[in-house]
Amino acid sequence: MLELKAVNAFYGKAHVLNNLSFEVGRGKVVALLGRNGAGKTTTMKSIMQMIQPRGGKVTYQGQDITGWAPHRVAKAGLGYVPEERRIFTQLTVLENLEVGRQPAREGCVTWTEDMLFDLFPNLAERRGNRGKALSGGEQQMLTIARTLMGNPALVLLDEPSEGIAPVIVEQMANVILQLKHEGLTVLLSEQNLHFAQAVADSVVIIESGTQKFAGSLTELQENPEIRDAYLSV
């Protein structure tokens, strides 16, 4: 469904992604693993075209989306949940959801505010509160909910477990499984291997912008040396 072919990305002159190539199959949850600074967020942004890759190709549902404006990528059905959350702090929870709203998309779940409040009960009671009044976990939920309002076919989840309480991390894992059950495709970036193991079908490991491993979870389990070399467990 989503395919990266030899994607290269730069910040100024710094080469951040080096010939990254992997695939995310329809209905799958793929975990992009790597340490801090490995290039996970850059990969996400390059897919969204928020950073224009220099060289390489990103295709989505067979369409070459390289060089598109980010809003066009989003309209094509890719939803982006940034790591820093970036909720609109001056807007209420409901207004935050409104920003994410897009028309219904064929073959995808059409999300409503009420469905999202079922998925994230904490947000329901906070619907009138401004974003800045939310806790870190609630903000994380709101970011995901806001992206789901766009009825995406594929969600890019950038480090959803970062900086939130363990009990909410567990809740996040359940949400991701539920989304997968609903037919969503997910590309998830993580440092937390346990979290990835709980939800992912396969993993891609990157280090310094270079791909080190791609395969199923079982294959990773059979190669503990890869895990030890590139992930901090």
């Binding site: 928020m50 404006a69 980010p70 809003h71 989003a74 309209k75 982006y80 940034p82 920003v99 992206t147």
Partner: peptide
């Protein structure tokens, strides 16, 4: 507040 994010949510 954050126009890049608004763009990433599908708003031109």
């Amino acid at each position: 507040q954050d126009r890049e994010m608004v763009g990433a949510l599908g708003v031109n």
